[in-house]
């Protein structure tokens, strides 16, 4: 029962974060919010009984994907500054 409550609370946060991430004007904030969705998803995988997936999602989904988004944003901004 407690696991259902945790999933409901985390799920509401994730859905709100998803909508917010698509509507934020600031791209940096949107990327960080999308990373937070992945981090919360890893908790849900742990509750659903698959710790392997939880580890993968925590390291890849919220770690490396966010970093790659930030590098891409950085490159776009650098191109902008050069010209």
């Amino acid at each position: 029962m407690i696991s259902v409550t945790i999933i409901i609370v985390l799920g509401i946060i994730m859905i709100v974060a998803g909508i917010v991430a698509l509507h934020l004007k600031n791209l940096l904030a949107a990327i960080i919010t999308a990373g937070a969705i992945s981090l919360l998803a890893s908790v849900i995988y742990l509750i659903l009984g698959s710790p392997d997936v939880a580890m993968t999602e925590a390291s890849i989904g919220s770690g490396l994907t966010t970093i790659i988004f930030l590098y891409a944003l950085n490159r776009v901004r650098k191109e902008n500054k050069d010209d």
Binding site: G18, L22, L27, I31, I37, G61, F69
Partner: peptide, 17 residues
Amino acid sequence: LIKIVIGFSIADTGTHI
């Protein structure tokens, strides 16, 4: 374009769940 990629990654997470 970056927002579109963010939408793709959210849909990805949803499918995995």
